[in-house]
Design a protein around this nucleic acid. Structure first.
Length: 677
RNA sequence: GGCGAGGUAGCUCAGCUGGUUAGAGCGCAUGAUUCAUAAUCAUGAGGUCGGCGGUUCAAGCCCGCCUCUCGCUACCA
């Protein structure tokens, strides 16, 4: 760390529309916490920053649905999140929030600086406006008929029925959900950050200058830069967020992605008047701990913002993790498929470290990983209990039994004694090397090797036998065991802080700096240790079964929810229906459309003519299987060009709950061109 | 389809700039042991390193094609 005098650790700001789950923890907070604790133990100057991200449209929607204010929503989740972090022992130096006054000021200032120094560009575009409420409408506040599937309650950004992503102007009969009126298109002015101008700098800074970044991060960044960067809007028409600090911009706020990372700066300000040292001194090393979904923001957009501002440092490294799955399925807040931290803390009191341990031992550092309750149980029982807890217990119980808890003096050390004690320093170096390279999982494994070392030493020396023949020698053996135990309290402190605190209690020992690790005389001769309790307890099958049952119930509830058919659309007149001309037709040719995943190009004999239709069914049908098959085709749908092919009609399909498509065919062969009605 | 990341023992993962018999933890088998929450320690079995081809004296590591998983993106008349 020659170049740097201090470290600023930021952790992705959790979005305050739901609680924290194990995926967040494994990806961001647990590794960041371990790293921060390690640096603190080394007496380095380090601060760890966190906070809730409280702006953005999803929060306003949730508020509206519940009939409360956005502030109510974020107050609720901010408290839950903050409290659960605190209980798990995530050691933020400050945990702030973006709805705070200090953040509004900081974000405003930041924007003003960019605005005044000409780093932003202005653009005017047309967006939907609700005249009754006198405001521009976020995409989600507009519903209308989906132009693709005809679903009448499609949102402005996506149709819930067919899954298509939309823009509000594509909706037929758009309606404002605020007033129920038809919104009008109105010009609106916004500011953009011209990311494209930063491309050469980004190339040099990251692609040339940071080849040491993790492959997943580096590759992702390269992909974005090579793909060409576009100017990105930094403001939005919305009333929830940081108001744009420019005259005549009522009803505009900073876009949430712009204000959220500035939250790191605000939080630092809240923590210390020295905040500028942490952000602007070139001798400060900034690290962003994030999940892979955030790579583009932290490696491209936020650095470009900082660069544009001109006085800030950019990150030295961005150790992004991949995703954690749960029991072979993606973690999902909306599907409630998660292990929620606040629930875990209630259901597993005193087992904070166990969760951290399991999430670290199986951290998704290089690829997506899977959390299973069975693995959770196995790691607890076979590693924490059997290896670590057991060794500590053996050393302490023997000390009580033979010496009433008083640390015996070591006599002359055998070669094996010396070797064992010397190994502590080797382990220290291994742990350091792993942590310095953000290989947290490997670091934990290395640290646990110290406990393994202890078990091996005991098994080889067999003090319970030697006590009968050479009681003097046993003093040395137990002194060594106790010194190893004492060293554990340092070595595992970053990973298992609560447990090491407990262990220090057994040993009657103060917390010690990292530098003491390797010292063979941490416990002075004659020191009195306490009667030990169990450091970890076994987790029984029934506890695991309860958790699995809980997940099983969630799964059932989800199935019930998705099995529920969409409600019927509004009634229509027969004449409306009669406008649709659906015919039976036979597929005569069929091939995949090049460079697409979903599209098939079909030639259909409709009885009227032979025509080309492009259909998004390639994921469910092989072209050769369709030839000769009779299908239903809507023949009077306006033609549309898709991937350069004119599609003249639409093949009717039934969509299953899981999204798979089935072509609707006549029950018996009929003459091509037969009307379907 | 494009781009990125991954596919190494039953499971979770290491394998540095290519170099002798491919490693760890857990699980499994056998043995030792009883101080300890039947915990521990030792030994062993188990791998065509996703598939095919190529470069090389030599490839898990380099190149090409294919395949599967995850993410971003295009796309669903």
């Amino acid at each position: 760390m020659s170049k740097f005098k201090r470290t600023l650790i930021t952790t992705a700001l959790p979005y305050a529309n739901g609680p924290i789950h194990i995926g967040h923890l494994a990806g961001v907070y647990v590794p960041a916490d371990i790293y921060a604790r390690y640096l603190r133990l080394k007496k380095e100057d380090v601060i760890m920053i966190g906070g809730s991200d409280e702006h953005g449209v999803p929060i306003t929607i949730k508020a509206k649905n519940e009939g409360v204010t956005p502030q109510d929503i974020v107050d609720r989740y901010h408290e839950i999140i903050k409290e659960s972090f605190q209980k798990l022992g995530i050691s933020f130096d400050v945990y702030s929030r973006t709805s705070s006054e200090i953040h509004h000021e900081t974000a405003s200032e930041f924007f003003r600086k960019l605005y005044e120094t000409g780093k932003l560009i202005e653009k005017t575009s047309e967006q939907y406006f609700d005249e009754e409420n006198k405001q521009f409408l976020a995409d989600r506040y507009i519903i209308g008929t989906c132009p693709k599937c005809g679903f009448e309650k499609a949102y402005g950004d996506q149709c819930e029925s067919c899954g298509t992503s939309l823009s509000p102007t594509e909706l037929i009969n758009p309606t404002s959900t605020l007033s129920g009126n038809q919104p009008v298109l109105k010009e609106t002015k916004h500011w953009y950050l011209p990311l494209d101008q930063y491309e050469p700098w980004l190339r040099e800074w990251i692609l040339e200058g940071h080849k040491e970044w993790k492959p997943n991060v580096y590759g992702q960044v390269k992909s974005w830069i090579d793909g060409g960067l576009q100017p990105r809007a930094v403001t939005r028409d919305l009333d929830w967020g940081v108001p744009v600090p420019v005259e005549g911009t009522e009803g505009k706020v900073l876009y949430v992605w712009f204000d959220a990372p500035i939250g790191y700066i605000s939080a630092t300000k809240e923590l210390t008047p020295e905040w500028e040292t942490y952000w602007k001194d070139p001798e400060t090393r900034m690290l962003h701990f994030i999940g892979k979904d955030n790579i583009v923001f932290h490696c491209i957009i936020f650095p470009a913002m900082l660069k544009a501002e001109g006085t800030y440092n950019v990150p030295e490294n961005v150790p992004a993790n991949e995703f954690l799955n749960l029991e072979n399925d993606k973690i999902s807040t909306s599907r409630n498929w998660a292990v929620w931290l606040h629930e875990y803390l209630e259901e597993f009191p005193g087992k904070e470290d166990v969760l951290k341990y399991v999430l670290t031992a199986n951290a998704p550092e290089t690829k997506d990983n899977d959390f299973t309750w069975k693995d959770f149980q196995a790691r607890n029982n076979n590693e924490l209990v059997a290896v670590l807890g057991n060794f500590v217990n053996r050393a302490l119980v023997l000390t009580q039994k033979y010496y009433e808890g008083v640390v015996p003096a070591a006599g002359e050390l055998s070669d094996f004694d010396k070797e064992t004690l010397a190994s502590i320093s080797t382990i220290k170096a291994d742990v350091e090397k792993s942590l310095d390279n953000f290989r947290i999982r490997e670091a934990l494994k290395n640290a646990m090797d110290l406990a393994r070392l202890g078990n091996k030493y005991l098994a080889d020396e067999e003090p319970w036998k030697v006590i009968k023949t050479d009681p003097e020698r046993v003093k040395t053996i137990l002194n060594v065991c106790l010194q190893v135990t004492a060293n554990l309290t340092i070595c595992l402190e970053p990973f298992l802080p609560f447990s090491m605190d407990k262990l220090r209690g057994f040993l009657n020992l103060e917390k010690m700096d990292w530098e003491r690790l390797g010292d063979a005389a941490l416990l002075p001769v004659g020191h009195k240790v306490n009667t030990p309790e169990l450091l970890f307890e076994k987790i029984e099958d029934s506890v695991i079964e309860t958790q699995l049952q809980k997940l099983e119930n969630t799964k059932k509830a989800n199935e019930m929810a998705t099995a529920k058919a969409a409600p019927a659309k509004e009634n229509i007149e027969f004449d409306d229906f009669a406008k649709m001309d659906v015919r039976a037709g036979t597929v005569i040719e069929c091939e995949k459309v090049a460079k697409t995943k979903k599209l098939l190009k079909l030639t259909i004999d409709t009885g009227i003519d032979k025509r080309t239709v492009v259909s998004g069914i390639a994921e469910y049908y092989q072209p050769e299987d369709l030839i000769g098959k009779q299908v239903s085709i809507l023949v009077n749908l306006a033609p549309k060009s898709l991937k350069g092919i004119e599609s003249q009609g639409m093949i009717l399909c039934a969509e299953n709950a899981d999204g798979t498509l089935s072509i609707v065919s006549p029950d018996k062969k009929v003459k091509n061109g037969s009307e379907i009605r």
